[in-house]
């Protein structure tokens, strides 16, 4: 049902202009770029390497925003309970959190989509087998998976990514399969099958594009969820190491300060997370509207 836009333009050009037609989304996109740039450049723009214990001293702990550190620099947004400059800590933390969130999201998505599509398309015994596996998987509390992995492998970024992938893939699989089953029943798939197109082509060229909308919805939710889950695991004491805190660890530590009057320790890491996740979601939202063939204006 799509109507072709009157102007002559490439599909990508149309995508870009559609995307930036929404001011809020543009804002989100710019914000996300800014955050990523800050995170990538962190070692060059922060006054302190918060992971180098030689540079951190407890004598700087819990200082309010604007205080001067012993080393001479100004702590723009204060310091945390062990003396880390919060600005430095947040940027370094962002690096870890983004890595964890994006890596785990992408891996889980690829895994989940492959499994979900296969289940929906093949159907029958394979389908029920896979979906039982998915059920099983979803019954596994993420805290338990993380705790087990930590015990076997030790804390660390790799392990938390692994844990988050294992926690998330089933969501994608379930959602993709749900939508794909409906799609499979539609005429265009039957038509494609009648034309004798290969399975792989039908799956990836015909069914998958039509599942994109829910995948993006789940994907944005899950990326946000991954970052939040990492924070939650840290809150429960089984996340990332304390000495190299991610954003999640900073928030978890900061939450202990909610009632203490030292608002900056709990508030700023939260703000950083909020901005990150909101910008990811704003972009994701707009992507969904723009990419969905059925929503074309």
């Amino acid at each position: 049902m799509k109507t072709v836009s009157p102007k002559e333009e490439t599909p990508f050009g149309r995508f870009v202009s559609d995307f930036f037609a929404n001011k809020v989304a543009t804002f989100g996109f710019l914000l996300l770029i800014l955050i990523i740039v800050l995170a990538v450049l962190a070692p060059w723009i922060t006054p302190q390497n918060p992971y180098d214990l030689k540079q951190v001293t407890v004598m700087d702990s819990s200082m309010p925003p604007g205080s001067e550190a012993l080393a001479g620099y100004t702590m723009l947004i204060g310091s945390d309970g062990v003396g880390r400059d919060l600005f430095s800590g947040i940027l370094y933390g962002l690096r870890i959190s983004l890595t964890v969130g994006i890596m785990s999201g992408v891996i889980a998505m690829i895994l989940g989509i492959s499994v979900g599509l296969t289940a929906a398309y093949v159907g029958g015994r394979t389908d029920s087998l896979i979906m039982r596996l998915v059920d099983l998987q979803l019954s596994f509390p993420s805290a338990l998976i993380a705790l087990m992995l930590i015990a076997i492998l030790g804390k660390g970024v790799d392990n938390i990514i692994l844990a988050l992938v294992i926690v998330q893939w089933a969501y994608y699989a379930r959602t993709v399969r749900g939508t794909a089953i409906v799609e499979r029943g539609k005429e265009y798939v039957e038509a494609a099958a009648c034309l004798g197109l290969p399975h792989r082509r039908i799956l990836f060229r015909h069914i998958l594009p039509n599942c994109i909308a829910p995948i993006i919805v789940v994907g944005t939710v899950q990326t946000a969820h991954a970052i939040g889950l990492e924070a939650t695991l840290s809150f429960l004491g089984i996340g990332l190491p304390q000495s190299e805190p991610s954003l999640g660890v900073l928030i978890a530590n900061g939450s202990q300060y909610l009632l203490s009057g030292k608002y900056w320790i709990s508030v700023f890491p939260g703000v950083a997370l909020l901005l990150t996740v909101v910008s990811i979601n704003l972009v994701g939202d707009q992507l969904r509207d723009v990419l969905n063939p059925r929503l074309q204006k």
């Binding site: 214990l53 030689k54 951190v56 001293t57 407890v58 309970g81 062990v82 003396g83 705790l147 930590i150 015990a151 804390k155 004491g237 089984i238 190491p241 304390q242 000495s243």
Partner: peptide
């Protein structure tokens, strides 16, 4: 926090110290 601060103090004085904290069950 105490473990981390001790690591800071030792690191600042020449003994480069890493920190590893875990739940008491482990």
């Amino acid at each position: 926090k105490i473990a981390e601060v001790i690591a800071q103090m030792l690191s600042a004085n020449g003994i480069t110290t890493a920190v590893d904290t875990m739940p008491r069950s482990v």
